[in-house]
């Protein structure tokens, strides 16, 4: 009797389990896995030159064409440049602010709130603000650089990507500061005391205690920051629309243009798969290192 009852109970529990995960699974199925798999089919079919004609199966031809095209190489190079321009600077700035504001001193709460404040901006708000700052007629940055009336920094292919990067770094300062501060809080005080007893001064304590103890946070921020930078879109769309002369045409922006300007989702799918592979590699590196660290801790 009771065995029967517990069997029935187990069946009921299992049914409830499926029912509870089902809503999420449906959303994932429709909006994550289906479009993900669809990319591979899109990549194997060429979009016809005129709408209305059937798509043509071309095997890996399109994949090879896109991956070997100079347009794709340029876009990938610009994206990597953008990552290099934003991620290291963002981490160093966040770390600097966090270290300075870490001491328990009078008024530190105000500084912490200020340094976190850019979290309350959005990509679009930050981009609109910096667009006006960079504007050749009314922009203060151009005015202070003595470039008023000249070619604006956003119109100059040599400076446009840097300007987009500055906007991005500023918008992410709050996040970087918060992450670094949380990391600093995880460093035990007795390590500093021990270092002080050993006669280490401030700079030595920073290099030999803070930095090593913070390495997991730094590493995590570098990987997550890179993944975020590889996905950048809003600041490009608002500041430069990929220009001038494709100087800021990062990967996601070029995917957007392929689909919504050129109507070519085949080419877009190949680039999207490339973006996925890049993010996947970064994620795996992050997981591997985190795993190794866990086993050290034991």
């Amino acid at each position: 009797m009771s065995a029967q009852r517990s069997a029935r109970r187990r069946a009921k529990d299992a049914l409830l389990g499926y029912a509870l995960v089902l809503p999420s699974l449906v959303v994932f199925g429709v909006f994550v896995f289906y479009p993900f798999v669809k990319n591979f089919s899109l990549a194997l079919h060429r979009t016809p030159p005129f709408p209305g004609l059937p798509k043509k199966y071309v095997g890996l031809d399109q994949v090879k064409d896109v991956l070997s095209s100079s347009e794709f190489h340029k876009s990938l190079r610009i994206t990597i440049e953008f990552v290099m321009l934003t991620v290291p600077v963002g981490i160093v700035l966040g770390l600097l602010l966090a270290v300075l504001a870490h001491k328990q001193l009078r008024g530190m709460g105000i500084y912490r709130t200020i340094f976190s404040s850019t979290v309350a901006t959005s990509v679009a708000a930050a981009s609109v603000i910096f667009w006006t700052l960079f504007n050749p007629q009314i922009g203060l940055v151009t005015y202070w650089m003595g470039r008023s009336g000249d070619l604006g920094v956003l119109e100059d292919p040599k400076t446009a990507l840097i300007a987009v990067a500055v906007t991005t770094v500023w918008q992410n300062i709050g996040l970087s500061f918060i992450l670094m501060s949380a990391g600093l809080q995880g460093v035990p005080d007795d390590l500093y005391e021990a270092a002080a007893v050993d006669g280490a001064d401030g700079a030595r304590r920073f290099w030999h205690v803070t930095l090593p103890m913070l390495s997991p946070t730094l590493f995590f921020s570098a990987v997550v920051g890179s993944i975020m930078a590889f996905q950048a879109f809003g600041q490009i769309d608002i500041l430069t629309r990929g220009g001038p002369d494709d100087a800021t045409n990062v990967l996601v922006y070029s995917i957007y243009e392929d689909v919504f300007r050129a109507g070519n989702d085949g080419v877009a799918a190949v680039k999207a798969i490339a973006l996925f592979v890049i993010v996947l590699i970064l994620t795996i590196v992050q997981l591997r290192v985190a795993e190794r660290r866990v086993s050290y801790a034991r």
Partner: peptide, 19 residues
């Protein structure tokens, strides 16, 4: 569920637009 975290929205947005 964990796998979904590895597929960025930027990889699937145009097909989602179609959907």
């Amino acid at each position: 569920f964990l796998t979904t975290m590895m597929i960025p929205f930027e990889v699937v947005f145009f097909t989602n637009y179609q959907t």
